[in-house]
């Protein structure tokens, strides 16, 4: 029996000055699923994420989250309803200690309803979240200025910011970019656990081998259009996908 989709994207389009960044893209997502969005540079992956999360208003199309139309709603409302995202160009609040960065999402209307989001609990919740995404326990790192963090840790901080909101869908925009192999390896079990806890994941990635260890379905974008959809094995088998993007990557896989 098929469940009601948690997220339904239908015929979403956006042009920037005549360039179709996203052109009639649609997909459905079941609760608890993990979806990868792949495609060459400039294929419209990040724009698609921005359209879903409200950071860019679509020209046409619909985004339905749990039966509710959230198309073009302001980003904070979409977050409040339960979709959190990370940014490809992750930037921390550099003038604050690392753990204080998480006070911001914990202060939001959504997090304040959760356990640990109340006044007085937030600092402790923040430290706990940092441990969860792999900041060493009892180290001084959470208390250092966020501006001094190495790139991999900024990415982890982004993930922690999403988790602080206890969302139903987490959208990760190139979480692995700039991470070393070992960093990615250490974060994969965490992503699997998050998914097992019932959270739906959408991951935009360039690093397919790592991505395909997490996701069970993928869509492929090229020039703003969806050219393939299916399991990782299915999409890499599509000739159009190979031509557009994968080519050598799959041969040595």
């Amino acid at each position: 029996m098929k469940q009601q989709p948690i997220l339904k994207v239908a015929d979403l389009s956006k042009s920037f000055g005549g360039v179709h960044a996203v052109n009639g893209v649609g997909f459905e997502l079941q609760p608890g699923e993990t979806l990868g969005i792949i495609g060459p540079n400039g294929s419209g992956k990040s724009t698609l994420i921005n359209l879903i999360t409200g950071f860019v208003k679509p020209d046409s199309g619909k985004v339905i989250f749990r039966g509710q139309d959230i198309t073009g709603a302001p980003p904070f409302k979409i977050v409040t309803s339960g979709i959190a995202r990370s940014f490809q160009m992750a930037r921390s609040f550099s003038s604050m200690p690392v753990y204080k960065n998480l006070i911001v999402p914990l202060y939001s209307a959504r997090a304040r309803k959760l356990k640990g989001g109340q006044y007085g609990d937030r600092d402790e919740t923040a430290i706990h979240l940092l441990e969860e995404v792999g900041f060493e326990r009892d180290s001084s790192v959470p208390y250092k200025l966020a501006g001094s963090l190495p790139h991999g840790y900024v990415k982890r901080l982004e993930l922690a910011r999403c988790l602080a909101l206890d969302p139903e869908i987490i959208i990760l925009d190139e979480l692995f970019s700039g991470m070393s192999m070992s960093e990615v390896a250490s974060i994969l079990p965490l992503l699997e656990r998050i998914n097992e806890e019932g959270k739906t994941l959408i991951m935009v990635e360039h690093r397919l081998r790592e991505l395909f260890r997490v996701v069970n379905r993928a869509i492929v974008l090229n020039f703003g259009t969806k050219i393939a959809e299916g399991t990782p094995e299915e999409v890499v088998a599509v000739q159009e996908v190979r031509d557009a993007y994968l080519g050598s990557e799959t041969e040595d896989a």
Binding site: F55, P75, F76, V79, F87, R91, S95, A109, R161
Partner: peptide, 10 residues
Amino acid sequence: DNDRSVEAGG
């Protein structure tokens, strides 16, 4: 510091 990130924080 970063208003987009605050917005993404709900």
